[in-house]
Amino acid sequence: NITNLCPFDEVFNATRFASVYAWNRKRISNCVADYSVLYNFAPFFAFKCYGVSPTKLNDLCFTNVYADSFVIRGNEVSQIAPGQTGNIADYNYKLPDDFTGCVIAWNSNKLDSKVGGNYNYLYRLFRKSNLKPFERDISTEIYQAGNKPCNGVAGFNCYFPLRSYGFRPTYGVGHQPYRVVVLSFELLHAPATVCGPKKST
């Protein structure tokens, strides 16, 4: 009989979020998941679920829940969905086509923008091939755009693969920082350890 609540607040209220190319993952297990707390949290810009209804989450049990978190621009949030393409979905964070879970995003301009620009948040701009679902690539190898080998030196046709967002408070909404948490639900042939409040007695 599990009684402790799942530590969703640790994920959602973290002081610093990860850059999207180096997205953070927390495994959540052996706890009671009260999703209504999240669902009623006012400032969400997006709360979209795939393969599961957000209002039914509290009735369900899962083997594991993974909480992935990172920061992207407002106009990139739409790429955090199954079957998407674009710089983020291709080179930074890719969801599987059969994704079961929820994508939760909110504007973090007050936290993550600075006058003069916040350059701490990076994304991958160049990559030889697209990421596989949930693949994480933190390499900083110089990207070779031409035929000539770069030998690890940036220059003509040789690019550092990461780019900084440089968030400023005055940017338009599409270019403002958004914090994103992706909850993915794993249902294995194993005992369920993460259940909603109704199922955990």
Rank of each mutant, 00 (worst) to 15 (best):
N1W: 04
I2Q: 13
T3W: 04
T3E: 09
N4W: 06
N4G: 11
N4P: 06
N4M: 08
N4C: 08
L5R: 13
C6E: 05
P7E: 11
F8N: 02
D9N: 14
F12L: 08
F12P: 00
F12S: 02
F12V: 05
F12K: 01
A14T: 06
A14N: 07
A14E: 07
A14F: 03
T15K: 11
S19Q: 05
V20R: 02
Y21A: 05
Y21I: 03
A22E: 14
N24K: 15
N24V: 07
R25P: 02
K26N: 05
R27A: 09
I28L: 13
S29T: 13
N30D: 10
N30V: 01
C31Y: 04
V32L: 09
V32R: 10
A33Y: 15
A33V: 13
D34Q: 04
D34N: 09
S36N: 14
S36P: 04
S36T: 12
V37I: 13
V37N: 11
V37D: 09
L38E: 03
L38G: 01
Y39C: 08
N40T: 12
F45T: 14
F45C: 13
F45V: 14
A46M: 15
A46E: 15
F47A: 07
F47M: 10
K48S: 07
G51R: 10
V52I: 12
T55F: 11
K56D: 14
L57E: 05
L57P: 03
N58C: 06
D59K: 10
D59A: 08
C61H: 11
C61Y: 07
T63W: 05
N64I: 07
N64M: 09
V65G: 06
V65N: 01
V65P: 01
Y66E: 05
S69H: 02
S69V: 02
F70C: 00
V71M: 03
V71W: 01
I72M: 04
R73L: 06
N75T: 10
N75M: 09
E76D: 09
V77K: 04
Q79T: 03
I80N: 02
A81G: 07
P82I: 01
G83K: 12
G83E: 06
Q84M: 13
T85D: 07
T85I: 08
N87P: 15
A89Q: 01
D90R: 11
D90C: 05
D90M: 07
Y91G: 05
N92C: 02
Y93I: 03
Y93T: 01
Y93N: 01
L95W: 00
L95P: 02
L95V: 11
P96W: 00
D97G: 07
D97H: 10
D97A: 10
F99H: 00
T100C: 12
G101A: 00
C102A: 00
C102T: 00
I104N: 00
W106T: 04
W106Q: 03
W106D: 00
N107A: 07
N109L: 07
N109Y: 08
K110H: 15
K110F: 07
L111T: 13
D112A: 00
D112F: 00
S113E: 05
S113A: 14
S113F: 03
K114Q: 14
K114M: 12
K114S: 12
V115N: 14
G116M: 10
G117T: 09
G117A: 09
Y119V: 13
N120V: 09
Y121A: 07
L122H: 15
L122N: 15
Y123W: 06
Y123A: 10
R124V: 03
R124H: 03
R124W: 02
R124P: 03
L125T: 15
F126N: 15
R127C: 05
K128W: 07
K128Q: 12
K128F: 07
N130G: 08
N130S: 13
N130R: 14
N130K: 15
K132Y: 07
K132S: 10
P133V: 04
R136M: 06
D137K: 01
D137P: 03
T140P: 09
T140I: 07
T140H: 12
T140S: 12
I142Y: 11
I142Q: 08
Y143K: 07
Y143R: 07
A145C: 09
G146F: 06
N147V: 12
N147Q: 14
N147I: 11
K148F: 10
P149M: 10
P149W: 08
C150T: 06
N151L: 11
G152V: 07
G152K: 11
V153Y: 10
V153Q: 14
V153A: 14
G155T: 10
F156Y: 14
N157V: 05
C158P: 06
C158L: 04
Y159C: 12
F160V: 13
F160N: 15
P161H: 02
P161C: 05
R163N: 10
R163S: 12
R163D: 11
S164A: 12
S164R: 10
Y165I: 03
Y165M: 05
F167M: 03
F167L: 04
P169W: 03
T170G: 15
Y171H: 12
Y171R: 12
G172R: 12
G172D: 15
G172C: 06
V173F: 10
G174M: 13
H175R: 10
H175V: 07
P177G: 02
Y178C: 11
R179C: 05
V180W: 01
V181K: 00
V181I: 05
V182G: 00
S184H: 15
S184K: 07
E186A: 05
E186V: 04
E186L: 00
L187S: 15
L187Y: 10
L188C: 14
L188P: 12
P191A: 11
P191H: 12
A192N: 12
T193Q: 12
T193M: 11
T193F: 08
V194F: 09
G196T: 11
K198C: 11
K199I: 14
K199Y: 14
T201A: 13
T201G: 14
